[in-house]
Design a protein around this nucleic acid. Structure first.
Lengths: 216, 216
DNA sequence: TTTAATTTGTTAATTTTTAAACAAAACCTT
DNA sequence: AAGGTTTTGTTTAAAAATTAACAAATTAAA
């Protein structure tokens, strides 16, 4: 399980870069908090936990924070990422240009369908059977799983076998992995359903309030 | 904020459908727990909280659970969803066929680039300026935001103004919305960074353990 | 019919996460 | 240089989420 504080640290980092680009050199917990949507206390607590220290009254030095966070997140080197499955999502990810700015590089894609091979010239695309070999050659540690549900666990197993330690899973399956392999699931449908639930809940609530007022 | 228990309920539902298709009529908390990756107690607690009741010794009736969960998630009617931004992610979502199985329908797409209009025949695509009108006409409550960072807040505001109550946000921005509008963020980069952190952490840990053993 | 086995559902305990409070430090003004 | 103000950082408190524990119910078997 990924801790919430690390997820926030990643957000702080993006925010700090933004403020740095805007020309700021220092920042207060209050500002960061506002930007991320948490309390200033939360920011200070997070920083404190990772030993990121500021200056009382003068706030935090942005460059200083960034240096320490970059070290924490191993941003000194570029991280190789492989992608299994070149369907709709896979293709979109290949097109995406934001990885390299964040020291991540999609080094190879894999698919079972030969028609998809080499069609996208951005990254080399191989047959899925070559995945273990390429993972080992590239020494990739992170994989994106965007294959159909039916083969997701199987492809996952091959990734793990070849040394992948973190998997971003787009398939609607709960993957079984050894405990030293972290899985992060993304399901657009699930998120939308949760949003629908929330939106209906608030309207239900409002209707109730209305009725309550009428009775008075 | 979306509660964790609702997110799990959505997962349980998918799992129940799977078991129903496999021919099962009843299921135990233990089975569901295993499938979702939580404890059986968690499953029972979640069910209890939403008043989903089973039979002691005989477990839960799948159809019964599904009926109640469907009601809870308002699965009786199809929910209209609109999509702003037809870039990489937007296009992938338009192609995605899984919405309709889950009672969700992408009813319209919007973009500022005329070249993207009507290119994808799956759904009607309009100019972004027509978005408020279409949202109102369709009475859509849920929107997907897949526009560039620079205009995300602006497009979000237009959505909210037109009556959208839930936003799935792919832009790397913390959107500011009224409190009756729920936002759910998806950031592939952030997730990958978190995975990288985790993978490095576990290897760091292992190296430490090795050193520790050597010292003995 | 009684006993044993099994599974739910609720209550209690624990852990994790978030928020509040406040002392200490740094800066600014007078 | 003194006093007031602001912001950090730690400690304490509160809230939320998870886990554990166990009684009650139901079924199956003896």
């Amino acid at each position: 399980m990924i801790k919430k504080n690390i997820q926030r640290i990643i957000q702080y980092r993006m925010c700090l870069l933004k403020f740095q680009n805007l020309g700021f050199e220092r920042i207060f917990s209050y500002t960061l908090a506002q930007e991320i949507g948490v309390s200033p206390e939360q920011v200070r607590k997070d920083f404190s936990q990772f030993n990121l220290r500021g200056n009382k009254k003068a706030g935090y030095k942005i460059q200083d924070l960034l240096d320490k966070i970059n070290e924490l997140l191993h941003k000194e080197d570029i991280h190789k990422i492989i992608l299994a499955g070149l369907g709709n999502i896979g293709k979109a990810l290949v097109q995406y240009k934001g990885f390299i700015n964040r020291n991540m590089q999609l080094v190879a894609g894999f698919d079972i369908d030969p028609a998809k091979l080499k069609k996208n010239c951005r990254i080399p695309v191989f047959h899925i059977d070559d995945m273990p070999k390429v993972i080992r050659e590239e020494k990739a540690r992170i994989g994106i799983l965007a294959v159909p549900e039916q083969v997701a666990q199987e492809v996952c197993n091959q990734m793990v076998e070849a040394g992948i330690k973190g998997i971003l899973n787009f398939a609607p399956v709960m993957l079984k992995t050894p405990e030293d392999v972290t899985v992060q699931n993304i399901s657009v449908c699930n998120e939308l359903e949760a949003l629908i639930y929330m939106s209906e809940k608030t309207t239900d609530k409002k209707e109730k309030e209305k009725k309550g007022k009428k009775r008075k």
